[in-house]
Design a protein around this nucleic acid. Sequence first.
DNA 1: CCGCATCCTCCGAGATACTG
DNA 2: CAGTATCTCGGAGGATGCGG
Lengths: 117, 117
Amino acid sequence: MPYTNEMLEECGFTSAQKILSGKWSMLIILFLSEKTMRFNEIQRLFPDITHATLTKQLRILEEYGIIERTVYSQIPPKVEYALSDIGMQLKPILDAVMLWGEEYKKHQPRSASASTR
Amino acid sequence: MPYTNEMLEECGFTSAQKILSGKWSMLIILFLSEKTMRFNEIQRLFPDITHATLTKQLRILEEYGIIERTVYSQIPPKVEYALSDIGMQLKPILDAVMLWGEEYKKHQPRSASASTR
DNA sequence: CCGCATCCTCCGAGATACTG
DNA sequence: CAGTATCTCGGAGGATGCGG
C-alpha cells in the first residue's frame, strides 16, 4: 500500500527527517547532549560555522522543541543552550549513527567525501 | 578543542550526515531493509516522488555504496534494488529514529509539521 | 519498464554588516 | 556577547519529455 505525502506528514519519521537533516543539527545535538553550552562556546567548537548560521540552526532546533534557550539579562549578555527531554532521547541514536559512520568509512574509504552529485 | 571543516570531513559522522539528509534517503533505506524491490514497486510505495527524483536518489545511494542495483537485461527491463551490507547496518538505527519520531509527535503535537522556517 | 537530460524553482547555508 | 537583516549562491528536489 502506498504512502502519500499526507500520510508521511502524519508519520513521526518525517518529523525526524526534517529535524535531523540540517547540516549542523546532529553535531549540535550531540555536543549539547554532553553539556549545556553558551553561544560562543558552540561557535568556538565549530570555527567554520558563522554566527549568523549558528543562530539560525539554534532557532530552528528551538522551535522544534529539541533545545531550550535560557537568556540571562545582564551585561554582557549570556545565553545558554541545553537539550530538552525529547532532545536528550536522541543521544543514543546519534551515538549509533556516529559508530555506523566510522564503520562505513572503513568499507568505503573514498565515497562520501567526494560527493559525486 | 575546535572542530574545523577539515576535521569533520575525516569524521565518519559527516559521511552519515550526507547520506541520511536526503529527503527520501531514510525512507528508501528503511523499506529496502525489509525486502529487495523493483523500481516501480518503490514508486508505487511513494506516489508523490517523481520517477526522475527517485532515480537520482537511488543513484546517489548507490554511489555511496548503501544500495546495490541489479539489472536484468530483458524486455521489458527489470531492475532490482537491495541494501548492501553496510546499508543493512542502518536498519536498527532507522528503526530507532522512527520510534523517536513517534515519541516526539506525542510531546510536540504540532511543531515539526508546521515548518516554521 | 526503466533511465537520462534539461530546465526550473526554492530554500539551506554562508558572507557581511549593523544593533543593544 | 548575542542577535538581526539582507544578499548571494549552489544544489536538492521536482516537472517534463525523449530514448532504449
